[in-house]
């Protein structure tokens, strides 16, 4: 009697797929695993294979990092990335709404201008900004860096919210207006809640864009407002490289983005699939 074929049998195809996924996962995670190992190794064992002295571990890099200028730089990163994201959303979402639902004949021009801003290399902005800031005393200030980050984040927010808000049915807006709501109230109470997944995803991307920036901060900050990605580079000195601090600082710099992405994950997925069913 022939044995009936099991419906959910694990096929070779599946096995190959899982294996490939695991290989890619290990490949992607290897730098992070390596950073964790470096962060926990004493300085004189850094270049030794871990299997030669697996128990030689230390937490001494943590207080060392805490005593350096890195926590202040991390705070600077948090403030500038948060404020520039908040301002970009406050200014950019109404802009995106106007482009999505307004009846301007210059939308084509606006779309090109936005694309140009998104595609232009940062160096095109940073030199004029540096000279301007030097003249008006904005170098090494939070406001200066926030303004610079908005050059990056505002076009992103306008462009993305334009796309998200275009999916809101016109009938929904018309119904709110017929019920007596002003345009502002319609935007706040009807449109933004309906387009929340797309807007949250946009905010997260804008935050990460500022959070991970190195180039703008390198040029227009100094010791007072230096951000974490630049501060990490300061662990490389003339006669030594503080690998332990670099590793733990990199981990610390990555950590805040994890809950943000986990929290925003469902919104990002939803935004990719379309926010509102028409």
């Amino acid at each position: 009697m022939r044995k009936p074929k099991r419906k959910n049998a694990f096929s070779w195809k599946q096995a190959a797929g899982v294996t490939m996924m695991l290989v890619f996962l290990v490949f992607a995670l290897l730098p992070i695993i390596w950073a964790f190992i470096l962060a926990l190794r004493p300085e004189n064992r850094l270049f030794e294979p871990i299997w030669e002295s697996p128990t030689a571990l230390t937490l001494s890099n943590i207080p060392k990092l805490a005593d350096s200028g890195f926590p202040k730089a991390l705070f600077n990163s948090f403030v500038t990335a948060s404020v520039s994201t908040a301002l970009a959303v406050v200014i950019g979402v109404p802009g995106g709404f106007a482009l999505a639902k307004g009846r301007s004949s210059r939308k084509f021009l606006a779309s090109w201008a936005l694309l140009l801003l998104r595609m232009a290399p940062p160096v095109g902005f940073v030199i004029p900004l540096f000279i301007l800031y030097l003249k008006i005393g904005f170098l090494d200030t939070w406001w200066g860096l926030i303004g610079a980050y908005m050059v990056l984040t505002l076009p992103l927010v306008v462009w993305s919210s334009w796309t998200s808000l275009s999916q809101i049915p016109d009938e929904l807006i018309e119904a709110a207006l017929l019920d007596g709501a002003t345009m502002g109230q319609t935007l706040r109470r009807v449109v933004i809640p309906a387009a929340r997944p797309g807007l949250v995803a946009t905010s997260v991307l804008a935050f990460l864009l500022s959070w991970n920036d190195f180039f703008f901060a390198l040029i227009i900050t100094r010791s007072d407002t230096v951000t974490a990605p630049v501060a990490i580079m300061n662990f490389v000195s003339y006669a030594s490289v503080d690998w332990g601090s670099i590793a733990i600082a990199s981990i610390v710099l990555t950590l805040p983005t994890v809950p943000v992405i986990v929290f925003a994950n469902k919104y990002i997925v939803q935004s990719m699939g379309g926010a509102v069913k028409g």
Partner: peptide, 10 residues
């Protein structure tokens, strides 16, 4: 408060 208490580059 935070943004107005940034030390100047002076």
């Amino acid at each position: 408060t935070i943004l107005t208490t940034v030390p100047a580059y002076a």
